[in-house]
Amino acid sequence: MKKILIGIIVVLLLAGCSGGEQVQSKPQDQGYVFNYNGIPIVVNTDVEPVLKELGEPLDYFEAESCAFQGLDKTYYYSGFELTTYPKDNTDYISSVYFMDDSVSTAEGIYIGSSVDDVLEAYGEDYTGGENAYIYTKGDSSLIIITENDEVISITYQALVEGLN
């Protein structure tokens, strides 16, 4: 009887193990890379070395993270903004958002490019509704929004639970 009871307790305690570990997201494959003046910027990677290379931002905003413990941070640079999410005392890049046509993707797409340019650069394997072209690679997505056949928004986005 004792053995049965001990067995039940052990099984019950162990049964939850697999579920619990899912809360922490795991390192994932590298996705799209944004190059700014030769500095590679990849979502879901540590922001610190990137910030060192980018230098002082034009502006900065921070807010308590809704999805993680710590602060969500937004750094404003010329032509784009870069956001981070905290995890295990490190800030990881959550997104890069183009603010004007002074920056372009590694594949040459910028705000003002045509839909044909987008399809030529990234192909037909996309999701998204009308006027949206969402390409997924590894743990990132490249979200391109168009209006009147012209790109009006480009975002590199990390694919992380609770972030999107």
């Binding site: 958002y97 509704g129 006027n131 979200i143 975002t155």
Partner: peptide, 8 residues
């Protein structure tokens, strides 16, 4: 931060 354009 200003609202980013959304796909939908």
């Amino acid at each position: 931060p200003e609202g980013r354009k959304l796909p939908d």
